[in-house]
Each structure stands twice: as C-alpha cells, then as structure tokens.
C-alpha cells in the first residue's frame, strides 16, 4: 500500500482483462496535486484503458483505485497483508510451513507465504472465514466512496468529444452543475459564460454541437468538464480525432490550463506537448509501466529499450 496521503489519484496493482486479453497487467501509480502527467505508448498498449480505469469507466479486474484518499473500487485483498494474514488459506499454509521449516523466523515466513498467496491467487472470498471478512468490510466501510460522487471531481475529455448532441452548447455546460451541484441556472450560466469567454467561443452558446468544428467541440468539452470544478482532468487522446490545423487550438487551451495549476493526466501522441508541459511522462507498454521520468530525462536519456525504439519511431 502506498503511503503518499497527498496523492489525488492512486492506483495500486491495477489489472484489466477483456476476456483472455490482458490489457493491463499490474500498474501502480500516483498523481499528485498540480502535476501534469502525460501517458504515452504504442497503440494497444493499454494507455487509454489505464486512463479509463482511473474514473472507472472501465472496471478494473484486480487492484484498487483511490481518489483523494477514498476507495472507489472493491477492496483487493492481495494489496493488504493484514487481510491476507487473517485468511484461512494463510493459516493453513502457515501451519504447514512451520512444520516443514521449524527454524524459520516469523517475519520471513510471512513474506514467503504472502508472496505465495499473491502469486498463485489462492484466496477464495467465500472460504476465508469471519475475521478476514470483517476486516475486508472494515477497510471498505472506512474508505469507500460512491463512484458517482467521486466522478464529480474528475473531469474527462474524450477523443470523440462526446458533447451531448441534443443540447445546446450552454446546456451542455450547465447541465451537470445544475443537476449535480444544485447550482441555480443563473449562477451556472454566469459561470459558463466566463468559461466560454476564456476559450473565445462566447458566440457559440446557443449553437448545437453539430454546428461546430472538431476543435471547437473539443474546447467546449474541456470547459464542460471544468464547469464542475474538478480536481483532476483526464484527457483521452484529445487531439487524435482532429484535423491537423485544429490540434493547436486545443493544445493551447490545455497548456493554459496546465499553467493555472490544474492537475492533468493526458494520454496523447503529441510529443511536443509532453516535452513542453508535462511534469512527468509515463511510458506504458504491454500493460505495464515501462518507464516513468521527467520529460528531460524521458526524452533525452530513455533507459528502457522499448522506449528508445518507440521514441526513435515517433520523433523523426
């Protein structure tokens, strides 16, 4: 279990399987307040899935996601040694092990057994006894928060914009603040106007999404997320669906946001953006984090051979 209590987002032992396809195979990461974390990787590496697991648009197969020190996934017993120690499986193994290795110290016994349980996936929820269950429940009760509440504080921007097609731009922006934050229509509208002005699209308030260009839609999508005053913004390849001449306007909005200190996690292929704005760059490949560093080190001195290879292909 990680110890950084200030992390806004924390994922631990994250696995995501789609059937037999193991897209994520154990990712542990933290995002602190004010950080701009850029996630890059080859297509199919799991980087978008990783991002979508952060706000549970995809439910992790194993592992825990913590948002502002609140748990949003079920408790994963493999991440809690104290839980594992209480399990019947552990106690059985313990008795066995003590017989076979009489001289072994308590501490190393514990290490061996916990490692074995984790590796071989030995826990069976139903057969682990009362003490195990009550501790699981205790951890859950103390830390769990409903994902719908947590999501209000995590904005997300999609590759395909996903503006609500049936609503005007203004209604797109004020819907969530009005319904979820119980803002009055006047307040929400006033706020939306300020946001629209910030991105220079005040004149589009009464337009509908289908009347806007891709770049405009994406900028609206960003302020729709901002209208909820999120603590973190997730960007899922925000410029990949745009015509080249519109990429700049969206990146400019994102850069400006980064300057205001907004915490951002950005999955992108825009290496220029990563170099310029990121405080940390993560390289995901084959479902695990292969490298994680400051942009200077990451691009200037890549350690992982897969990363060097990848960079040599994308940075021409």
């Amino acid at each position: 279990m990680s110890t950084d209590k200030n992390a806004l987002v924390r994922v631990d032992g994250l696995h995501k399987y789609f059937g037999n396809n193991k897209v994520l195979r154990g990712i542990t990461a933290e995002i602190d307040k004010g950080e701009v974390v850029v996630v890059i990787g080859p297509s199919g590496s799991g980087k978008s899935t990783f991002l979508r697991c952060l706000n549970l648009l995809e439910e992790p197969t194993y592992g825990e996601v913590w948002l502002e020190n609140k748990l949003v996934t079920p408790v994963d017993p493999y991440l809690h040694e104290d839980v594992m120690e209480l399990s019947k499986t552990y106690q059985k193994l313990y008795a066995q092990y003590k017989q076979d290795h009489p001289g072994e110290s308590e501490e190393s016994t514990k290490q061996v057994l916990i490692h074995k349980i984790k590796e071989e996936d030995l826990l069976h929820e139903k057969h682990e006894g009362k003490a195990y269950k009550s501790l699981m429940k205790k951890i859950y009760d103390e830390n769990y928060v409903n994902i719908n509440l947590a999501r209000q504080k995590i904005g997300m921007v999609f590759q395909q914009f996903n503006l609500f097609e049936n609503l005007s731009i203004m209604d797109n922006i004020i819907l969530a603040p009005m319904k979820l934050l119980k803002m009055s229509k006047e307040d929400a509208t006033a706020k939306a106007k300020i946001l629209l002005e910030r991105i220079g699209l005040s004149d589009k308030a009464d337009s509908y999404p289908s009347q806007l260009s891709g770049g405009q839609k994406q900028r609206i999508a960003i302020i729709r997320a901002l209208a909820m005053d999120p603590d973190v913004l997730l960007f899922d390849e925000p410029t990949s669906a745009l015509d080249p001449e519109m990429v700049g306007e969206v990146l400019d909005v994102m850069k400006e946001l980064a300057k205001t200190g907004m915490t951002m996690v950005v999955v992108t292929h825009e290496m220029g953006f990563a170099k310029e704005v990121a405080s940390r760059v993560i390289f995901i490949d084959e479902g695990i984090i292969k490298e994680e560093n400051t942009p200077e080190e990451f691009f200037g001195n890549p350690q992982n051979p897969r990363l060097s290879d990848f960079l040599s292909k994308v940075l021409i």
Binding site: N148, M156, Q160, N162, N166, A176, K179, L180, A221
Partner: peptide, 22 residues
C-alpha cells in the same frame, strides 16, 4: 452513441440520471 453515455457518467451522473437527461 456509447460516448454520450460515457460523457454523462464521467460528469458524475448515475446510470438512471444519464438515461433520463441524455
């Protein structure tokens, strides 16, 4: 479009609210 649903959920609407509003 599935994206409409996901956009609603990502703002914090629950399943039923997303259905009703969007």
């Amino acid at each position: 479009d599935k994206g409409q649903f996901e956009a609603g959920r990502s703002l914090g609407f629950n399943y039923i609210q997303t259905m009703i509003y969007i």
